[in-house]
Design a binder for these strands. Structure first.
Length: 288
DNA sequence: AGGCAGGTTCTTA
DNA sequence: TAAGAACCTGCC
């Protein structure tokens, strides 16, 4: 199906933003901007045709019931960008260069596990580790005939639609032994992952209940998990719970703060959108 | 070969 | 409360 999306949406920038790890650029014949997204036990191929037009491999029903929400299309990112203070040179530049980034509405569990894995890893290593984990424990995803036809019409090589695996749920993840987890390049994080799965499975940590907590409560609940410190908890809250005011501070953002905001970053000015500003700043650091 | 990468835990003072 | 060491793994 084809949709017109007038608000910010730059597939490449989102794929490189570091919030998601299962967006893969495909080598289609004609269009250099065709991405494969695996989320929610499904796969979406999305092609940017320019002029705000996007071709999607899914049915209209799947778009309405899942992907529209996943892409957070009801949030106005142009408006959020307009709040950037003109006298803040760095943030103005970052928001301009990062125009097109959105904060996806990703699965809570997947975000939590992904950011536990992310500690002391670079993005390619995180992606590789998650991919192994999905192959080892995730459910296989099969494409409908309509989707296969869609890919064929665009000359997308078969390799992009074969051997696709969903992100493992808590039970599937717990089904892997510690050795099995280590085989997915998770290293010393394997015990963190195992215990987190155990806590979620047993119900002692209830992620859907945590939706009802306020930001401060959510952060401290998440930090109770073994292997989850402030950075991972903030990323989980921002990306997995869509709490757009969280501002995860990693080494890159630390550099931004000590270079451009010696007096401190004006969080009050950007409440409740600090997390979006963080994404622009992170992207700017990665691309300048 | 040794250092470092989207951190967190554990130990020690 | 705060600083420092240790930790898997892969890639310079």
């Amino acid at each position: 199906m084809t949709v017109e999306i007038k608000d910010d949406l730059d597939l490449q920038k989102i794929a490189e933003s570091g919030q998601c790890f299962r967006w893969e650029k495909t080598e289609a014949l004609d269009n250099p901007v065709l991405y494969r997204i695996i989320a929610g036990g499904r796969v979406l191929f999305i092609e940017d045709r320019g002029e705000c037009v996007f071709d999607l491999s899914c049915s209209e029903n799947d778009y309405v019931s899942f992907w529209h929400d996943y892409l957070d299309l009801d949030t106005d990112y142009r408006k959020i960008r307009s709040y950037v203070k003109k006298d803040d040179g760095f943030l103005s530049r970052a928001a301009e260069n990062g125009k097109g980034i959105r904060i996806l509405r990703q699965d809570r569990w997947e975000s939590l596990i992904s950011f536990i894995i992310s500690q002391r890893k670079n993005i390619p290593a995180i992606r590789a580790s998650i991919e192994k984990l999905c192959r080892a424990a995730g459910r296989k995803i099969t494409l409908a005939d309509g989707e296969k036809k869609w890919l064929k019409e665009r000359g997308v090589p078969d390799e992009y639609s074969e051997e696709l695996y969903a992100f493992p749920d808590p039970e599937e993840l717990y089904g892997l032994s510690e050795e099995g987890l280590k085989a997915c390049s998770t290293g010393y994080r394997a015990p963190y992952l195992r215990r987190t799965a155990e806590d979620v499975l047993s119900g002692s940590m209830d992620l859907s209940y945590m939706e009802s907590l306020n930001d401060d409560e959510l952060l401290s609940e998440l930090m109770k998990l073994y292997g989850v410190g402030k950075k991972v908890a903030s990323c989980t809250a921002l990306f997995g719970f869509h709490r757009l005011n969280f501002f995860p501070v990693d080494v890159w953002i630390e550099r931004v703060l000590e270079t451009h905001y010696i007096e401190g970053f004006p969080f009050e000015s950007y409440d409740p959108w600090n997390g979006v500003m963080q994404q622009y700043m992170f992207y700017e650091m990665q691309h300048s």
